[in-house]
Design a protein around this nucleic acid. Structure first.
Lengths: 110, 110
DNA sequence: TCCTTTCATCGTATATTTGCGATAAGCAAT
DNA sequence: ATTGCTTATCGCAAATATACGATGAAAGGA
């Protein structure tokens, strides 16, 4: 394809898409579920409950952190992660402002 | 990587991830925005307001349809598409059941 | 000092996504 | 029948994503 055209869309569209991409893999959904249940936890606990290798889990954590969905700080030899709830709130607001306003107005059309 | 491990996660996690993947591209967010504004419209109208070729738009529409986010029926030489609001409602429910329950319980941790 | 534990990163292999031009398929009107 | 319009699909090229083993890095304890 040579050239990606993502930058030709609005910043809101790009931000929504970036958030969605961050949660577009079951492993990352599962990681977020674990973090939501325990409020926070270290990397090793996540690896234990996941059918993936340590390096793969670490990569998924990195992507979630890059997307701003989780916070993390390395604490000696351990790394502690937790969910960034503000980011989820922002996603909900943007998502709803795009779609929810029209939700009951529209009947099925085709 | 050789083997994908998506099937090792729960069906809810897979469904959420599949929905997120469908909206993980700005072009598809933009297409959904156009459909939400006009309630329904034909493929050509979408191509007109999009910085992408007809074949690329058609491919994005196909992915949205495969994911169940839009309905479409070909109507003579035209194709009419509209948003499947039930799918969005289901996504909202699943998404909130995963995360919203804990939203105000948790303070920032790290 | 050396070992152990914990986690991140590098390198690599494979799969999937993205994008477009070209072509086909379907229908309406001439 | 032929032409024109609209949309889907095919085939290709390039970029990204997914996954893992191996290797580093950082800190604590023997």
């Amino acid at each position: 394809m040579a050239i990606h055209k993502k930058e030709e869309f609005s910043t809101t569209e790009q931000a929504l898409a970036a958030f969605a991409k961050a949660i577009s893999h079951p492993a990352r959904i599962a990681i977020l579920g674990v973090l939501a249940q325990r409020n926070q936890c270290i990397c090793g606990e996540i690896v234990d409950v996941m059918p993936l290798s340590q390096s793969t889990v670490s990569q998924h954590l990195k992507e979630l952190k890059n997307a701003g969905l989780i916070n993390g700080e390395t604490d000696g030899p351990r790394s502690c992660y937790c969910i960034n709830w503000e980011a989820f709130e922002k996603f909900n607001v943007d998502f709803n402002s795009l779609f929810q306003q029209l939700r009951e107005v529209n009947a099925k059309c085709c």
